[in-house]
């Protein structure tokens, strides 16, 4: 017992020493090569514009801190909507794979195999090219529904009290989805949904057949057996791996830089480049993703405990 404690203490000391050594070297190297360090730059004027701001106010006269917050808001927006849409699409696909209808099951299977075996960044380029190269410019916009315009500048739609109108170069007013946001959202949703479909399928299959048979023998219909017995049991197998898919989607949203969506990584990269402070910039990116991921995990763990069978050890 005593010896174990000593080993533990030695380990902690070694880790602390290593960190201290890295810290000292970094500070020394930055100092000798006259590279600025510290977080004072966060309060300085950013000086660059950001294409979309998730409804928050921002101008080039704001600080780097504000710019990074806009980046975080953009990451959060695409991840939150993506998680919801990917879950819906994934559950539908997973159930479709188990459907008695041969064609439906095969189509869903083909979708899953195709989408999850093509790199996500390639899919993002595909969706982005589809929007920016195939849709017409704002002056020749498509209008599939009254007041809804499809252009290579994005999708514009009316909101209560405000309709999009062509002013000069572009549409103003109403609501808008930029091509970058739309491509990223579609890409993340369709990609993650393929993985969620497999998790749902595995979860449903993990419920012993006897459970369903028992429900049927009690007089439940197939649909009732599925929604009252099979799915609630399957949920317990689904939630833990689902958590890691939510984390993946959130982290994958950093591929946004490839297609120009101003997410946190994109803004942080620009900040690193304008200020030259790579260590601080990378530290901010890591801290933010760690916080986001741990928050998602904590929420999903709470939810997992809530749906767990009481008194049964998983």
């Amino acid at each position: 017992m005593r010896r174990a404690l000593l080993v533990q203490a030695a380990l902690v000391a070694a880790v602390a020493l290593a960190i201290g050594w890295f810290w000292y070297n970094a500070a020394h190297n930055l100092e000798t090569r006259k590279i600025a360090s510290g977080f004072a730059f966060l309060a300085r004027e950013a000086g660059f514009e950001i294409g979309e701001t998730s409804g928050l106010a921002y101008s080039a006269a704001d600080t780097y801190l504000r710019a990074l917050a806009i980046g975080l808001a953009n990451t959060f927006r695409v991840a939150a909507i993506g998680v919801v849409l990917a879950t819906v699409l994934g559950v539908l696909l997973g159930l479709a794979r188990l459907a008695p209808n041969w064609l439906l099951a095969r189509l869903a299977g083909a979708y899953v195999e195709f989408v999850r075996n093509v790199p996500l960044v390639v899919q993002l380029f595909f969706w982005y090219a589809l929007i920016s190269e195939n849709l017409p410019g704002p002056r020749e916009a498509l209008e599939p529904l009254p007041g809804v315009y499809l252009t290579n500048r994005g999708i514009f739609f009316p909101l209560p009290g405000s309709r999009p109108e062509l002013v000069g170069f572009n549409f103003e007013g109403g609501g808008a989805l930029s091509p970058e946001f739309a491509a990223l959202l579609v890409g993340l949703t369709t990609y993650t949904a393929a993985f969620i479909a497999e998790i749902v399928r595995a979860g449903v299959l993990s419920v012993p057949r006897g459970q369903r048979d028992a429900a049927r023998s009690l007089g439940m219909s197939e649909r009732q057996a599925l929604s009252y017995v099979v799915l609630p049991l399957a949920l317990r197998a689904i939630v833990p791996p689902l958590t890691s898919q939510y984390l993946n989607l959130t982290k994958n949203s950093s591929l946004a830089v490839a297609i120009g969506y101003p997410d946190l990584v994109s803004i942080a990269n620009t900040t690193i480049n304008q200020t030259g402070q790579a260590i601080e910039g990378i530290a901010i990116i890591m801290a933010v993703y760690l916080t986001l991921s741990l928050s998602i995990s904590a929420f999903m763990n709470w939810y997992n405990r809530r749906v767990a069978l009481k008194g049964v050890r998983a």
Binding site: F48, E49, I50, A60, A61, I259, G260, T270, Q274
Partner: peptide, 27 residues
Amino acid sequence: PGTTTELNLADYFRANRMTFKPVVIEK
């Protein structure tokens, strides 16, 4: 991104009281 261009652009539009939408792509 990460160019003086990006900063001059914002400066020029601010100085001339105009607005613009940037599309920022690295490659």
